[in-house]
Computed example of a mutant assay.
Amino acid sequence: MQKDQLLTRLLTRRRALLSGAAAVGAAGTAGLFVLGGDAEPVRRTATPAAGSQARRPLKPSTYRLQPLTGYGPPQATPRRTLVRRTPLLRVSGRGRTMVLTFDDGPDPRYTPAILDTLAEYEVRAMFFVCGEMAAARPDLLARMAEEGHVVGNHTWSHPLLTRLTRGQIRSQMERTCDIVEEAYGERPQWFRAPYGAWNRNAFQLGAELGMEPLAWTVDTLDWTTPGTRTIVGRVENGAAPGVVVLSHDAGGDRSQSVHALRDYLPQLLDAGYHVTVPRRQYA
């Protein structure tokens, strides 16, 4: 036998062996997919030996709509709130930025009018609410959420925290967090001690509940009902970048606060101030 003929036969035999192995492998693989849940064979139409393999269209399924968990984005590290020793008095921001805050509400006699003025000038503010007041008017908290205002925790019943035990302070804060979350849609990220009376327990518990302590820079003293013009003058004279203004929308007759806002807000905007809400800073 000539050398060329021998080489041709060997190559032909090798191709036959490889084709047979491929056929056995294909049959074994097909067997893995035709077994039903009860491990009994399921008859299927044989696929052609030659040509491209016919594929059945995939049916929609919940599984196919879900991303593989192994390839999802890494979980973010939980953000930690610092335990401060003093409350924040000012806010950082670009340019002439100011923050307006209102305490003790919501009160149906005054809060809606304040919200109306803020909406008229497309300004957002902060409302430090008392839990017992919020529980009575959850609709006002829902409106604050819809209009982009920030709701903070001002305790449940406005007590002097320095006279309470740690457990009592926690109860005052937690109950208010719960009612704010229910009515506003999320838990508060800021808190303010009634009367500005802070202590170590207040700072620690506030941080444990994920809240930053915010005080104020300018106190309008509107709770003393000094007159609308006096309130307006205090805001205008104290206006400066980063200033936090304290006013009230409950806790007494707040009609002067309502009228004063209508006077000083457009003047602040005309003076180039950007009245907005602060952003949280996490550790």
Rank of each mutant, 00 (worst) to 15 (best):
A136W: 03
T29G: 15
P226Y: 01
F128I: 09
A239R: 01
D38S: 02
D219A: 05
Y184I: 05
Y121V: 04
V150G: 06
T97P: 09
T220Y: 07
V42P: 00
H274S: 14
Q204E: 15
R234E: 00
M126G: 07
G167I: 02
F128P: 08
D4C: 09
T217L: 09
A46P: 00
M173I: 09
G206K: 04
F128H: 10
T228V: 14
D104F: 07
T97E: 12
G242P: 04
V218W: 07
A183Y: 08
T69I: 08
T81I: 11
M1V: 11
A197L: 06
A240R: 14
A142E: 15
L214Q: 11
G185A: 06
G196W: 04
D116R: 14
D270Q: 13
V150Y: 04
L214D: 08
V180Q: 06
R166Y: 01
G167S: 04
T220G: 08
A39I: 02
A26R: 05
T97I: 10
T47S: 12
D139F: 04
W156H: 11
L164Q: 07
Q2G: 14
L265V: 03
Y121P: 05
W216V: 09
F127N: 10
G72A: 13
C130K: 10
I169M: 06
R64E: 03
D38K: 00
A239P: 02
D178Y: 07
A145Q: 15
D263T: 11
F33H: 09
T8V: 11
E146Q: 15
T165C: 00
T162E: 03
R229L: 09
G206N: 06
P60G: 01
R96H: 10
A22S: 07
G95L: 03
E236C: 02
P106M: 08
Q53I: 15
A240C: 02
N201L: 03
D4N: 12
R254F: 12
L164M: 11
D222S: 05
G148M: 09
D263S: 10
Y121C: 05
R229T: 11
A50Q: 14
A125P: 07
R124F: 05
A136F: 03
A136V: 06
R175C: 06
A215K: 13
G70F: 02
V245Q: 08
H149R: 10
E181V: 06
R43Q: 00
A49M: 15
Q281S: 14
G28C: 13
P266H: 02
W198C: 06
G152M: 09
Y71P: 00
L118T: 06
L18V: 05
S255D: 12
S257Y: 12
R94T: 15
H154P: 08
P241V: 01
P278W: 04
R15T: 06
V245I: 14
P78S: 01
P159C: 02
A22P: 00
L214H: 05
D38E: 01
D263R: 12
T101L: 09
I231G: 02
A54P: 14
R15C: 04
R43F: 02
V24N: 00
E122A: 14
I169N: 00
D222A: 04
A113N: 13
T97K: 15
M126V: 15
P60H: 00
M144F: 10
R143Q: 14
